[in-house]
Every structure is written in C-alpha cells, then in structure tokens.
Amino acid sequence: MGMRRRRDGIGPLEYTRRAWMRLILLATFVFLYAPIVTLVAFSFNDSRRNIVWRGFTLEYYEKAFNNAGLIEAFVNSLTIAFFSTVVSTVLGALVALKLWRFRFPGKAPYEGAMTLPIVIPEICMGVAMLAFFSRIGWPSGLTWPFNLGAITIAHISFSFPFVAVVVRARLANFNREQEEAARDLGATEWQVFRDIMIPYMKPGLVAGALLAFTLSLDDFVITFFTSGPDTVTFPVKVYSMVRFSVTPEVNAASTILIAITLVLTTIALVLQNRRTTD
C-alpha cells in the first residue's frame, strides 16, 4: 500500500496545501461569515421588507438612533456591563489568587463550585435568578440605575468565574522567585503584592475584564429572566424587535452591536500581543 509521488510538489504532511482541504476551509468560512456579512450589508438596504437589495441608505441607522427604546436599552446594557465588569474583575482576581496561592481543605470541591456558573445551562441559571429575586422580594420600581441591580447581580454571578479562569492562567506562569527576590530585598507582604504581583497580573486582569464586559453586553437568556418592562437591555430589545417584525432597523441595531464587539475584541488582542514576553 505505497504512496504515489505527488507531482505538484506538495509534501505528504502539507495537508493545507491540498485543493480539497482549501475548499473545505473556504466553504466553512463562507458558511460562518455569509449570514453575518449579509445582515450587515442589508442594514443599508433601502427597502422595508428587506428581501431584495434596493439601494444604499442610512435611513435605518437614523431610525435606530432615534428609537428611544433602543437607545435606553443600549444605555442600560452599557451601565450593567460597566458595573458587572468592575465587580467581576475584582471577585475573579480574588478567587484566582486564593486558588493559586493557598492549600486549604476542600479545595477541589471549591474549585468545582467555582466552575459551576460556567458549566451550568444558561436557562437554569436564568430561572434560578428569577425565582431568587421574586422570592426575596427584590424591590421593583427603583430609580435608574438601581433598578438595574438585579440584572447586574446576575451578570456578576456568571462572569466572575470566567475572569477567575483567565487570571489564574496568567498566575500559573508567575516565577515565584520574583516574589522571593522582593522579600529578600526587604519588601513587606503588601509591598510585594502591590509592586510585583499586581503589575504581573495586569494583562490577565485586562483580558478578564474585557471578557466580563463582552459576556455582559451580549447576554440574552439570563437577562431575559431578570429584566422587566422598564429594565430592558440591548439584546432583549433586539429580540422583541425580531419577534415583532424583521426590518432593516433590526439589522442596523445588530450591526452596531457587532461593531462594538469587534472593537473590544481587537483591543483585547492588541493588548495581548503587546505582552508576549513577560
């Protein structure tokens, strides 16, 4: 069962140079991107029913920007994401530090419990939060931004374990001799933490924060269960728009959300690449 010598000069392991492999890759990328690209393209479509391309227009972006409900939802999403990110990053960093630094009884079950929010189906967490807030009589009708409290709490709960994973991965590569060197030179525990550990953790903290921000901004299911008529977030608003009617306005709103996510991801990647050696 020998092999024919290839005449096109491609080595036996250079799979990616083979035509059919490239075809599969191409087809997959087309499959993944075509719907999104089309959605973005059609947000500029001058047609109400949005089936055939009629012409270029920014009309629907205008509509989107003038849609008070949409703007309000957007502001809500940003506010929630901001607070969620701040608290999640702190909590996640604390967990990561605790797991990295200390041995303690019950560590394995604790680690398991900390990954529960990551693993659990979103719907289960959503209904759990709904049940919780209604059962403890979480006050409703609060003024902004306090009325976003329930959603924010829910977002923090599922975000901070993700941050913990990211920060922990960063800590795992820490050279403990740096810590010992600082102590050897006379630094106290606090000084070591402030001068050596926090600067080291920074890339992990930033990556974790960006992750938490994106998770919060994008979340639908859990927010769906913890939001009310006066506390609508951007994805929830888009959902109701989709259910109601499919107009290019929805496309415009979606494109805006995609753009924001892309910008954030790019920032994250740039930051990550700037710190390849540390």
Binding site: I36, T38, F42, N50, F220, Y239, V242, L257, L262, T265
Partner: peptide
C-alpha cells in the same frame, strides 16, 4: 464573539 441573538437572526435571512 458576535452576539448569539444576532447570529441566529442572520440565519433567518
């Protein structure tokens, strides 16, 4: 990284 809602919606088209 794109919102799940949006990706699903895009498939409708």
């Amino acid at each position: 990284w794109t919102n799940l809602l949006i990706r699903t919606y895009a498939l409708i088209a």
